[in-house]
């Protein structure tokens, strides 16, 4: 039996080598990540883990979690897809800059990088290519630090911008940018920031930080970036 398992494992290795020669190393890594995600979901389900509970912070969130319809959109009714499921948190009802909003538009928000104290806290969060997962201790530390600061400054609102590098297609990158900004927002809310103070903007690849090509430039551009507004 042991010998059979070893031979089976060897045959899988040969198979991987054989098929991966037809693809680039990036393709192989992307496919391996996809396979890993599917396996992880399967394992979690097998052990009965279907999501995580979290505190409801507002009437909007309650409506979403309870499945009540929202006047500005109608969501799917599936249990698994319900707004408020673990990977998606409803956006705040108020839109900065909209007629009737108590929060002004983006022009009133400032770049914390221009303030030496804030620049140390609101650093850019970086992403892997074609991914909206927040990974790495450095990124998580930035998000925790920002969240703490925001909890201590309850009159500050924040825009989380999602950006992409120049290599991906423009249209898809607008969706990827949205998911990147939401990934950061979700973590900030889980850290205790009230959800209706955090807004997302997707810029896709429309506003690169640095123009040009090359790994360093691409890495710099695949970012979450922030703008803040202090309400008096």
């Amino acid at each position: 039996m042991k010998r059979f398992l070893v031979q089976f494992a060897l045959s899988l290795c040969v198979l991987q080598l054989t098929t991966s020669c037809q693809r680039s190393s990036d393709d192989v890594w992307n496919d391996t990540q996809s396979a890993g995600r599917h396996v992880a979901r399967g394992v979690k389900t097998a052990f009965g883990y279907h999501g995580e509970s979290r505190e409801i912070n507002s009437g909007d969130e309650f409506d979403a979690a309870s499945g009540a319809s929202n006047p500005d959109f109608v969501a799917f009714d599936d249990e698994a897809m319900r707004v408020g499921a673990s990977d998606s948190i409803l956006q705040a009802r108020e839109t900065p800059g909209e007629a009737g909003s108590s929060i002004p538009g983006i022009e009133a928000f400032r770049d914390p990088a221009l303030d030496p104290e804030l620049a140390e806290i609101f650093k850019h969060v970086h992403f892997d290519y074609n991914s909206s997962l927040v990974k790495g201790q450095e990124n998580l530390t930035i998000i925790v630090a920002m969240s703490e600061w925001l909890k201590n400054h309850p009159n500050v609102y924040i825009f989380v911008e999602g950006h992409c590098d120049s290599r991906g297609p423009a249209a898809y990158n607008l969706a990827l940018g949205a998911n990147r900004s939401n990934a950061i927002r979700n973590l900030m809310i889980k850290e205790g920031v009230v959800y209706d103070r955090v807004f997302t903007i997707s810029y896709g690849k429309e506003r690169p930080l640095v123009e040009g090509e090359g790994e360093e430039i691409w890495t710099a551009n695949r970012r979450g970036q922030f703008k803040v507004y202090e309400k008096n």
Binding site: V83, L174, A175, A178
Partner: peptide
């Protein structure tokens, strides 16, 4: 559209009556 959050990559139906688009109102695009 009054939908909150980002509204991107729209498309209008050929009969001119509907618009489809991507939005992260529900926390993902």
């Amino acid at each position: 559209s009054k939908i909150r959050a980002n509204q991107v990559t729209p498309s209008i139906s050929p009969n001119g009556l509907f618009v489809a688009f991507s939005s992260d109102v529900a926390g993902r695009a």
